[in-house]
Amino acid sequence: MRTDISTSTLLEMQRRMTRIRRFEERAAKMVKRGLIPGAVHTSIGQEAQVVGACMALDDDDYMTGNHRSHGHPIGKGSSLGPLMAELVGKATGVCRGKGGSLHLADFSVGSLGESGIVGSSIPIAAGSAFASKILGRPRVSLAFFGDGAANQGVLYEAMNMAGVWKLPVIFLCENNQYALSTPAHTVTSGDIFERAAGFGIPGVRVDDGQDVLAVYDAVKTAADRARSGEGPSLVEVMTYRFNEHSEGLRIDNYRDKEQVGEWLRRDPLDYLAARLRDRGVTDEHLKALDAEVMDEVDRAVEFANESPYPEPSVAFEDLYTDEVTAV
């Protein structure tokens, strides 16, 4: 077991994973009750993969994500209130009620935006890395995308440019083994991480993506490499989503029950809790942490509920930065 990561860092990882879990459990309930309009995709089961990656970054490093969108900003340190307000479409939402679940962005924590279009945000992360490189800024960028997005051509355009220009960017493939209902192996030739070799950049696979430290180690190595000017890396993390593709979709004929059961036993929160206990952290401490997070989620929901809906005129704001009168 690793000793160079302090117990307080491990506790912070557990806290962030718990924040994702409890926030999304609550969001899923709210979808059922009709309190959240639109689609909601949870990262429940994938928290280690999200938090391991985010914690390996610095606070002002950049990040883009995808439709499975809440974990990324939460993992990067967003406050829950404005995120929950965004999910319900309130004026105090992190995107003023104009993004919703699929398009969260929180620039205050380096979150440059999630994307409803599979694969589309990958070059945005690479572009932020390009800016950092040109401007001499010691920041790293990370693009989260799924095994499904790994078959979009734009990923390889971005990887090629990042490779040849040595951009400080990490391509992080969340391989939860399905793109909606489609098993990755039925539509993917070869192994995703091995594709990096074609671009002359490191590609690694984290086989136990339920172990936050395994993810952290791999991404930390990639981040250090990027920050020291050596360029991009591809990190593929094997994981599993515990919930449906999106809440309320009610299509579950494509994963066999035994496989689901097996993965449910590999809960990233339990994993890290066990490690913390090994380090002498008490059950009471862990329970208190969970209770604090539950309380934080309660307050986020209260904040969202008490917030007003945006004025209709807000729909006509934020198209342009400059004052535009002629349209």
């Binding site: 440059l112 690479a126 572009g127 890395a129 390009f130 960028s141």
Partner: peptide, 26 residues
Amino acid sequence: RNRIRNTPISEEGIVGIAAGAAMTGL
């Protein structure tokens, strides 16, 4: 070359990279 740069023939990637760079300071 930091200020003017040839790109590969990758229009989708170029436009996306320019967009990401524009969002973050260039």
